[in-house]
Amino acid sequence: MLSAIRSHLLPLFKLYLLGLKVLLVQLVSRPFRLPVMPRQDGKVAIVTGGGRGIGYEVVRHMARLGAHVIIGGRDEHEGLAAVRRICEEYKEAKVEFKKLDLASLQSVHQFVQSFKERHLPLNILVNNAGVMLVPEGHTKDGFEQHFGVNYLGHFLLTWLLLETLKDSGKSGQFSRVVNVSSSAHRIGKIRLNDLNSYQCYSSHAAYCHSKLAQLLFSSHLHQEMQHGGFPVSSCAVDPGMVDTALYRHLWTPLRLAQRTIAHLLLRTPAEGAATVLYAALSPALEGECGGGYWANGCREMTTALTSEPQLQLSLWQTSLQLVGLQ
Rank of each mutant, 00 (worst) to 15 (best):
P121E: 05
N123C: 12
N123W: 01
V126Y: 08
V126D: 05
V126H: 06
N128C: 08
N128T: 02
N128G: 01
A129R: 06
A129E: 01
G130W: 09
G130Y: 08
G130R: 00
G130T: 06
V131R: 00
V131C: 03
M132E: 02
V134E: 06
V134G: 11
V134R: 14
V134T: 13
P135G: 03
G137C: 04
G137V: 05
G137I: 02
T139S: 10
K140W: 09
G142N: 07
F143E: 06
Q145A: 05
Q145F: 00
H146M: 01
H146L: 02
H146C: 10
G148E: 08
V149L: 08
H154C: 09
F155R: 03
L156P: 00
L157V: 02
T158F: 09
T158E: 09
L160R: 06
L161A: 02
L162V: 04
T164A: 11
L165G: 07
L165H: 00
L165R: 03
L165C: 03
D167L: 15
S168D: 00
S168L: 04
G169L: 09
G169K: 13
K170H: 14
K170L: 13
S171M: 14
F174A: 10
F174T: 08
F174G: 04
S175V: 01
R176G: 10
V178W: 02
V178N: 10
S182A: 11
S183C: 06
H185A: 03
I187G: 08
I187A: 05
K189G: 00
K189N: 03
K189I: 00
L192G: 02
N193R: 15
N193W: 15
L195S: 02
N196L: 05
N196H: 07
N196E: 10
S197Q: 14
Y198L: 13
C200L: 15
C200M: 11
C200V: 12
C200E: 10
Y201D: 02
Y201F: 15
Y201V: 03
Y201E: 09
Y201R: 11
S202M: 07
S202P: 12
S202G: 07
H204E: 14
A205G: 13
A206V: 09
A206H: 08
A206C: 01
C208D: 00
Q214A: 07
Q214V: 05
L216K: 01
L216W: 04
F217W: 02
F217Y: 06
F217H: 09
S219Y: 15
S219G: 04
H220D: 08
L221K: 05
H222Q: 11
E224R: 15
E224I: 15
E224G: 11
M225E: 07
Q226M: 14
Q226R: 15
H227P: 07
H227A: 15
G229A: 04
G229W: 13
P231Q: 12
P231M: 07
S233T: 15
S233K: 01
C235I: 06
C235R: 07
C235D: 08
V237C: 06
P239F: 09
P239L: 06
P239K: 02
M241T: 10
V242Y: 00
V242C: 02
D243G: 07
R248G: 12
H249L: 10
W251I: 14
T252N: 11
P253M: 05
P253L: 01
L254D: 09
L254I: 13
L256V: 14
L256T: 05
